[in-house]
């Protein structure tokens, strides 16, 4: 554990979503980093990890695209790369795993990239990164979130598969709970923390995403949670942006605010909700913010 030590520097791979539909995720990460003495050094000229479309169509491509990013990280003398998107994290960690354990693919990819792999790169999810900083989070938490009940949602890829992640428990994980507890919130027990949100099917099989979101949101609401805490831009989009369609299909109009875990940590530090990008959500976060007297955001209703 690096808790309590001096400044931590990690490589930073934002991934495509954090520069577009999940801007608020990056905004909140950049807002909390200084308070946590965390230096995020972006990988210069990083490219897309290839996501589902690469691994569903061409295994070699699905290793080569993220492997290029790992080579760039080594050139920047970074030992560890943080990927805030759970899907990017899975692709980068899977590529690193292939480089270390699949000699045939590793040598094919080296020849494709025209580069050789240097030292192994540790790939970190947001759950791993913030778990190392719970002491700092606790010491910076000045806004009491005491009564706030939250459901921590891991989705499918944050702790799975275990031989790639080598972190937390793949069936009963606790890392997100330890982080929100450090921030002062109260994690609820619920049963859909690891169910898949439908991931990349948002466009191509929207009905599946609505079906999966329905059971996740119903369980979160029934658990008494006041907000759902996520750690992935796809989970956020499927549960926030698609929530109106999900609620309509369920005949259940109770809104459930969906926050990135970095936004919750930022709120506990007393940061302005607008700096944390809470004005960019589709589900109005104001009732939730008012509960903790966290100030106001201008919210537009979804057309």
């Amino acid at each position: 554990m690096r808790n309590g030590e001096a400044a931590m520097k990690v490589g930073y791979f934002p991934g495509c979503s954090l520069h577009a539909t999940a801007r608020e995720y990056e905004e909140s990460l950049k807002a909390i980093a200084p308070a946590l003495d965390l230096q995020l050094e972006e990988i210069r000229d990083w490219a897309c990890c290839g996501a589902t479309s690469a691994h569903s169509t061409n295994h070699l491509l699905s290793v080569a695209l993220p492997a290029r990013t790992l080579v760039l990280a080594a050139r920047q003398n970074l030992d560890r790369v943080f990927a805030p998107c759970a899907a990017c994290y899975n692709r980068l960690a899977s590529a690193q795993h292939a480089i270390e354990h699949d000699k045939k693919v590793a040598s094919q990819v080296e020849s494709i990239l025209g580069a050789s792999f240097g030292h192994p790169i540790g790939v970190l999810s947001i759950a791993q990164l913030l778990s190392e900083m719970t002491d700092r989070i606790r010491s910076k938490a000045i806004v009491p979130l005491k009564e706030l009940k939250v459901a921590c949602y891991y989705g499918c890829l944050l702790v799975r598969p275990p031989e790639i992640c080598r972190f937390d428990d793949p069936e009963a994980p606790t890392s997100l709970e330890s982080i929100v507890t450090a921030a002062g919130a109260v994690p609820v027990k619920w049963d859909k923390a690891l169910e898949c949100c439908g991931g990349g099917f948002s466009l191509s099989r929207t009905a599946s995403v609505v079906r999966l979101g329905r059971s996740i949101l119903r369980s979160a609401k029934d658990s008494g949670a006041q907000a759902l805490i996520v750690a992935c831009p796809m989970c956020h989009s499927n549960l926030d942006f698609r929530q109106r369609a999900i609620n309509r299909s369920a005949g259940d109009d109770r809104p459930m605010p969906v926050l990135f875990i970095s936004q919750l940590v930022g709120l506990s530090m007393g940061l302005d909700p607008v700096r944390l990008g809470l004005n960019r959500h589709f589900v109005n976060p104001q009732p939730f913010l008012s509960t903790i007297s966290a100030g106001r955001v201008e919210h537009r209703e979804q057309a």
């Binding site: 499918c156 275990p162 069936e171 690891l194 898949c196 599946s208």
Partner: peptide
């Protein structure tokens, strides 16, 4: 083509 690669099966 419906598999989401959620890795639940692989994990379990």
């Amino acid at each position: 083509w419906m598999c989401l690669t959620c890795e639940t099966c692989t994990t379990r």
